[in-house]
């Protein structure tokens, strides 16, 4: 677990006068789930977008697989993937067609086999010919997740993947992700507003507040440091106190 997959150094993003991300440094190691948490507007999504090369940082360096993202984005992104509750699939395509398009975009070798496998894993096999626009939000999320695994990524960026899911489906999704992680040694950067989920899923967490990292470590250690009984309470303390 010591090999860093992602190394972030002094990452900064300024929007006009707002410092959305302020000199953030951290690493994600091979096979770990790193949870990014913090109140709305803390900068979680912006960090993820910078790691995907969708937003250009003002300062700082991102290295993924030991190579600078700015120079090697295409090769890096080929082995990464992304899923967000706020980004959808083309809504006039069927589930299977979506996966075919993305299998091609990522130049997946055994497309049919991979797609069949993912449809099974995410239990969307029976709706493979349904149009995306007719899916429930739980089904859409599972399709998004299936897409995010189409290229067997080594690093996965998941932005609030379980938002808008009912507790049952959310729980199933978490189990699935953990299973996948165990099987494939994938690294995952994860955000969620569900603190229980963060505690359960993350090997380590990073607590962001107004663009700054204010705590970092294993969930249990962070809880201890803040002298609280769980992450939820840590979150409330941080979110409600101005001075951090």
């Amino acid at each position: 677990m010591l090999e860093p997959i992602v190394e972030v150094e002094g990452l900064t993003k300024v929007f006009k006068s707002l410092k959305a991300v302020n000199k953030v440094s951290f690493s994600i190691y091979s096979g770990e789930i790193l949870g990014l948490l913090g109140p709305n507007g803390a900068g979680k999504t912006t960090i993820m977008h910078m790691l995907l090369g969708l937003t250009t940082p003002n300062e700082g360096e991102v290295k993924i697989f030991g190579r600078p993202l700015a120079k090697h984005r295409k090769e890096i992104i080929q082995e990464a993937n992304f899923s967000s509750n706020y980004v959808s699939m083309p809504n006039s395509l069927t589930v299977k067609e979506c996966l075919k398009v993305f299998a091609r975009l990522y130049q997946v070798k055994n497309k049919e086999q991979k797609i069949t496998e993912l449809l099974k894993i995410f239990e969307i096999d029976d709706i493979r010919n349904k149009l995306v626009r007719h899916l429930s939000s739980g089904q859409q999320t599972r399709l998004n997740l299936a897409k995010s695994l189409i290229n067997d990524p080594k690093i996965l960026f998941l932005d609030e993947p379980t938002a808008s899911l009912d507790p049952d489906i959310a729980d199933k999704t978490r189990r699935l992700l953990q299973l996948i992680k165990k099987k494939s040694n994938i690294s995952i950067l994860y955000t969620s507003h569900n603190m229980k989920e963060m505690e359960e899923m993350s090997d380590r967490i990073i607590f962001l507040h107004k663009g700054n990292i204010i705590a970092e470590g294993r969930p249990a250690d962070v809880i201890k440091r803040f002298k609280r009984k769980d992450l939820e309470e840590v979150f409330l303390k941080v979110a409600r106190e101005e001075r951090y």
């Binding site: 969708l54 080929q78 992304f82 980004v87 975009l105 897409k147």
Partner: peptide, 18 residues
């Protein structure tokens, strides 16, 4: 615009697509 409207745009550009 169809890619934009179906909120698919980021999925496309989060891939190696140039």
């Amino acid at each position: 615009l169809e890619d934009v409207w179906s909120r698919n745009f980021l999925n496309l550009f989060a891939s190696p697509l140039g």
